[in-house]
Amino acid sequence: MNNVSLVGRITQAPELKLVGEERFCTKFNLAVDRYLGSTQKDEKRNEGKPTADFPRITVWGKIAENCCKYLDKGALVSITGKVSTSRFEKEDGDIVYMTEIVADRVQFLESLHSENKQ
Protein backbone atom coordinates (compact mmCIF):
# COMPACT_ATOMS: atom_id res chain seq x y z
CA MET A 1 0.00 0.00 0.00
CA ASN A 2 1.42 3.37 -1.01
CA ASN A 3 -0.10 5.99 1.33
CA VAL A 4 1.68 8.88 3.02
CA SER A 5 0.36 11.27 5.65
CA LEU A 6 2.51 14.17 6.85
CA VAL A 7 2.08 17.30 8.95
CA GLY A 8 4.64 20.05 8.69
CA ARG A 9 5.49 23.59 7.69
CA ILE A 10 6.07 24.78 4.13
CA THR A 11 9.70 25.87 3.67
CA GLN A 12 9.11 28.31 0.78
CA ALA A 13 6.12 30.05 -0.77
CA PRO A 14 4.45 27.79 -3.36
CA GLU A 15 4.66 29.03 -6.96
CA LEU A 16 2.11 28.03 -9.59
CA LYS A 17 3.39 26.60 -12.87
CA LEU A 18 1.43 25.76 -15.99
CA VAL A 19 2.32 22.31 -17.35
CA GLY A 20 1.08 21.72 -20.85
CA GLU A 21 -1.89 23.83 -21.90
CA GLU A 22 -4.28 23.43 -18.98
CA ARG A 23 -2.63 21.67 -16.04
CA PHE A 24 -1.36 23.56 -12.99
CA CYS A 25 1.35 22.30 -10.65
CA THR A 26 3.26 23.49 -7.61
CA LYS A 27 6.18 21.96 -5.74
CA PHE A 28 7.49 22.78 -2.29
CA ASN A 29 9.36 21.18 0.58
CA LEU A 30 7.73 20.40 3.89
CA ALA A 31 9.63 20.53 7.19
CA VAL A 32 8.43 17.53 9.18
CA ASP A 33 9.69 17.07 12.76
CA ARG A 34 11.24 13.74 13.69
CA TYR A 35 12.23 12.84 17.23
CA LEU A 36 15.07 10.41 17.62
CA GLY A 37 14.25 7.44 19.81
CA SER A 38 16.42 4.92 21.59
CA THR A 39 15.94 2.33 18.81
CA GLN A 40 18.22 4.27 16.48
CA LYS A 41 21.53 2.97 17.75
CA ASP A 42 23.84 5.34 15.85
CA GLU A 43 21.88 8.38 16.97
CA LYS A 44 21.56 7.41 20.66
CA ARG A 45 23.49 10.48 21.77
CA ASN A 46 20.72 12.66 20.30
CA GLU A 47 17.89 10.72 21.93
CA GLY A 48 14.80 12.85 22.52
CA LYS A 49 16.14 15.74 20.46
CA PRO A 50 14.17 16.90 17.44
CA THR A 51 15.45 16.86 13.91
CA ALA A 52 13.55 17.30 10.66
CA ASP A 53 12.99 15.72 7.28
CA PHE A 54 12.27 17.84 4.20
CA PRO A 55 10.28 15.78 1.69
CA ARG A 56 9.50 17.29 -1.71
CA ILE A 57 5.74 17.70 -2.26
CA THR A 58 4.10 17.94 -5.69
CA VAL A 59 0.51 19.15 -6.01
CA TRP A 60 -1.62 19.24 -9.19
CA GLY A 61 -4.76 20.97 -10.44
CA LYS A 62 -7.15 23.06 -8.38
CA ILE A 63 -5.42 22.01 -5.15
CA ALA A 64 -2.16 23.48 -6.50
CA GLU A 65 -3.95 26.73 -7.35
CA ASN A 66 -5.41 26.95 -3.83
CA CYS A 67 -2.02 26.24 -2.23
CA CYS A 68 -0.46 29.12 -4.16
CA LYS A 69 -3.36 31.43 -3.41
CA TYR A 70 -3.71 30.80 0.33
CA LEU A 71 -0.41 29.43 1.66
CA ASP A 72 2.93 31.05 2.32
CA LYS A 73 6.28 30.05 3.79
CA GLY A 74 5.85 28.69 7.32
CA ALA A 75 2.19 27.65 6.97
CA LEU A 76 1.25 24.45 8.81
CA VAL A 77 -0.38 21.88 6.52
CA SER A 78 -1.41 18.24 6.48
CA ILE A 79 -0.55 16.31 3.32
CA THR A 80 -1.90 12.96 2.20
CA GLY A 81 -0.66 11.33 -0.96
CA LYS A 82 1.63 8.74 -2.47
CA VAL A 83 5.38 8.22 -2.78
CA SER A 84 6.66 8.56 -6.35
CA THR A 85 10.20 7.76 -7.46
CA SER A 86 11.50 8.76 -10.87
CA ARG A 87 14.89 8.53 -12.53
CA PHE A 88 16.77 10.32 -15.24
CA GLU A 89 20.19 10.10 -16.81
CA LYS A 90 22.51 13.09 -16.62
CA GLU A 91 24.71 14.13 -19.54
CA ASP A 92 27.70 12.41 -17.94
CA GLY A 93 25.79 9.10 -17.83
CA ASP A 94 25.06 9.10 -14.09
CA ILE A 95 21.56 8.02 -13.14
CA VAL A 96 19.73 10.24 -10.65
CA TYR A 97 16.77 9.02 -8.62
CA MET A 98 14.24 11.48 -7.21
CA THR A 99 11.64 10.65 -4.59
CA GLU A 100 8.70 12.96 -3.94
CA ILE A 101 5.26 12.90 -2.40
CA VAL A 102 2.43 13.48 -4.89
CA ALA A 103 -0.33 15.02 -2.78
CA ASP A 104 -3.94 13.93 -3.20
CA ARG A 105 -5.07 16.25 -0.43
CA VAL A 106 -3.65 19.32 1.29
CA GLN A 107 -5.40 20.47 4.44
CA PHE A 108 -4.63 24.01 5.59
CA LEU A 109 -4.10 23.87 9.33
CA GLU A 110 -3.30 27.57 9.45
CA SER A 111 -2.82 30.26 6.85
CA LEU A 112 0.02 32.74 6.73
CA HIS A 113 -1.60 34.54 3.82
CA SER A 114 0.43 37.61 2.96
CA GLU A 115 -1.16 40.78 1.62
CA ASN A 116 0.82 40.64 -1.64
CA LYS A 117 -0.62 37.23 -2.60
CA GLN A 118 -3.98 38.71 -3.60
Rank of each mutant, 00 (worst) to 15 (best):
D53L: 06
S78F: 09
R105S: 12
Q12W: 02
K49G: 04
N116Q: 08
G93F: 02
A103Y: 04
V7Y: 08
K62A: 14
S86D: 15
T80S: 15
E21D: 14
G74I: 09
F28Y: 04
S78I: 00
I63K: 01
E65T: 07
I79S: 15
K82R: 10
L76M: 15
T80I: 14
C68M: 04
W60R: 09
E91W: 00
V77N: 07
N3G: 03
M98W: 01
K62P: 08
R34Q: 01
K117P: 02
M98Y: 02
Y35K: 11
M1R: 03
I10V: 12
E110C: 05
E43Q: 11
R45T: 02
F108R: 01
L16Q: 02
P50A: 10
E15T: 09
G48Y: 06
S5M: 05
V59C: 07
F54R: 03
F54P: 06
D104F: 02
A75S: 15
V83S: 15
S78E: 12
T39L: 06
G20V: 07
K27H: 11
P14M: 01
I63L: 10
L109D: 10
R45D: 09
E15V: 09
K27E: 14
T51A: 14
V96W: 02
I101R: 05
H113Y: 15
K117L: 11
T85V: 13
E65F: 03
G48H: 06
K49I: 04
T58Y: 02
E65W: 00
S86N: 14
S114F: 07
I101C: 13
D92V: 05
V77P: 11
G8Q: 10
N116T: 07
E89T: 12
C67Y: 00
L109A: 08
N66C: 01
Q107S: 08
K62M: 08
L109I: 05
E100D: 12
R34T: 01
R23A: 12
D92P: 13
E65L: 04
K27S: 15
K44D: 04
L36C: 01
T80M: 15
I79K: 11
I101F: 09
F28H: 00
S78P: 01
S78Q: 13
E91A: 14
T80C: 15
K69C: 03
K69Q: 14
T58S: 13
L76T: 13
D42F: 00
R105Y: 11
Q107M: 02
K41N: 11
T58A: 11
V19F: 08
L36K: 00
A52I: 03
L76F: 14
